[in-house]
Write a protein that binds this DNA or RNA. Structure first.
Lengths: 308, 308
DNA sequence: CAAATTGTCTGATCTGATCAGACAAAGAGT
DNA sequence: ACTCTTTGTCTGATCAGATCAGACAATTTG
């Protein structure tokens, strides 16, 4: 045993004072009276100070005991308060939530969820980092990371909260020029490649039980999704994007969904956490809201695209 | 185990924060690093809150951990201060000393010792109760009792600090009228009895190896030493008193010591304490001073009365 | 005066604290 | 890029402290 103070005896001592006897203290603490006698005796030994004068059937504090009781009972109250305060972290969102998400998913989905979160928990504060660079949650001191795609094996704990679909879109002008297309047309169509995606130049279309594997050589290949988007908007070629990032433009007619009857491989949307045994309420609450948003997105997608 | 908070883990946690790692904390606390890991883990379990984010070779507090660290380290500082404050009771006199002594010994000897005590420890306060009634130290909440005489067996702890002699004195007029007396004269002499003394009417004189047992019938018997003294002063008869209570009068000639070559049975002067394992410095200091006073009285008595 | 209650003590048992060592994961040095 | 070192966790074993059950002495209560 190292020479740490044993603070666990304080409660036995203060309860004797408050209850007026060892026997009553033992009753309150639900232990044998010998335990109380022993623990207070050990405390006096450690302090080398007599805290209680005992006569048969009677006990009262010495001057030192009276003074120490004031200090000890205050310590115990503060300890209970400290324990209760920290327990609130698991009971209700409090403080600052620091999260990171990919740029396009962050702006398209996470921002809206942050708004709902702050409305629900006005006492919260959020620090959002939308960046396609995958950060180390521990080093960067983040409470939460949103990952979109296919999760690499990682020590981080993760929870899948939704699914995204990949869709092919084109500018209205290019779509009009190309007319209706099928997967078999893929090799002859103009494509814009995205280095952020797996397997550039290979596509796997599926419809019901039917699956078509195609290959193409992109006219232009970009390393940033924003650049891919810009090229696609200017009519250079077709681009592949997660559905959530172009849903609004397709809905409004500013972009045209190509191969609308076919599905491309979907990916997951994950909440990723630093390794920890207990998750604070602020994180759980946010992830629950985001999952709810994803459920609504999924239900809306089913209504507009029954084949999914 | 009752449901008391375990406060002994706080120091492991705060030391990890302060040292920057489990390994460094273990070094500081002189325990194995597995102990620190275990104790902090148990603390997190009890709180159901993650206090530290751990990556390999790195550790940092969570928000909850940071908040709890402030509270916990303050608690530990206050605990150390409380323990140190109470330890001072055993190191130096502090507060109020409540003592009781018999009236005549109190006024003759203890008062002088109180003066010296307050001069030596100006921060002290004393509550002195001079009363011939023997009080119960525990019930009456006294730190110390002075007993003069022959101690009855008691549960109180006691320490003999001195000795008193009984002396026979008379008013100068009576002494002149009687002339020189010897123990053999005892039965024909006028006596004033004191109910506070043992064996009223029987005296045991001794001188060297010689011992003379005598008996007498007192003219007047009083139940208060003060009354015995008053009768003696008015010349009614001889009175027997502890030497310390008449030393000044004999010295000044206002009273006359009878049978100056003979000794009567002596008694003890005792410091009596309520039962306790540790004695506060304020009590020890006072008893030491009183014992020193008694040593000086004893030395002075030997110089003026070589046969003792 | 007898019965009841309180606080302490003791030996036994149980529980928690700690140790010693192994292991996985990441960082540092070459 | 690879090897070595360091850190934190886990596990089984051991030790130390906490607690229990019961006996006993002393005082209070009826």
């Amino acid at each position: 045993m190292s020479k740490l103070l044993n603070l666990n005896r304080l409660a036995y001592f203060t309860t004797v004072i408050e209850a007026g006897s060892f026997t009553a203290a033992a009753d309150r603490l639900n232990v044998a009276k010998a335990v109380v006698s022993h623990q207070v005796g050990r405390l006096e030994e450690e302090l080398a100070v007599t805290l209680l004068v005992r006569s048969t059937r009677r006990v009262r504090p010495t001057d030192a005991g009276r003074q120490f009781y004031e200090r000890a009972s205050q310590l115990l109250r503060e300890a209970e308060s400290a324990f209760a305060d920290v327990a609130r972290h698991t009971e209700e969102p409090t403080g600052l939530l620091r999260l990171t998400a990919p740029l396009d998913y962050g702006t398209a989905v996470v921002a809206e969820t942050i708004a709902t979160y702050l409305k629900t928990y006005p006492q919260m504060r959020v620090e959002a980092n939308f960046d396609d660079m995958v950060s180390n949650l521990v080093d960067d001191e983040r409470d939460l990371g949103i990952r979109v795609g296919w999760l690499a094996d990682s020590s981080n704990v993760s929870r899948k909260i939704g699914t995204f679909h990949q869709v092919v879109v084109a500018s209205p002008a290019l779509a009009a020029r190309l007319g209706p297309v099928s997967p078999a047309d893929t090799p002859r169509l103009p494509w814009i490649g995205n280095e952020a995606l797996r397997h550039i130049g290979r596509l796997s279309f599926s419809r019901g039980d039917e699956q078509v594997l195609t290959e193409f050589s992109p006219l232009v290949t970009c390393d940033k999704t924003a650049a891919v988007y810009a090229c696609m908007r200017s009519g250079i070629g077709l681009g592949i994007f997660p559905d959530f990032s172009v849903a609004a433009e397709v809905q409004s007619g500013r972009l045209v969904r190509m191969f609308p009857d076919w599905l491309l491989p979907s990916g997951g949307i994950y909440a990723v956490f630093p390794p920890a045994r207990f998750r604070p309420a602020k994180v759980r609450a946010f992830v629950d809201l985001l999952a709810e948003t994803e459920r609504r997105r999924s239900a809306a997608r089913k209504m507009s695209q029954p084949s999914a």
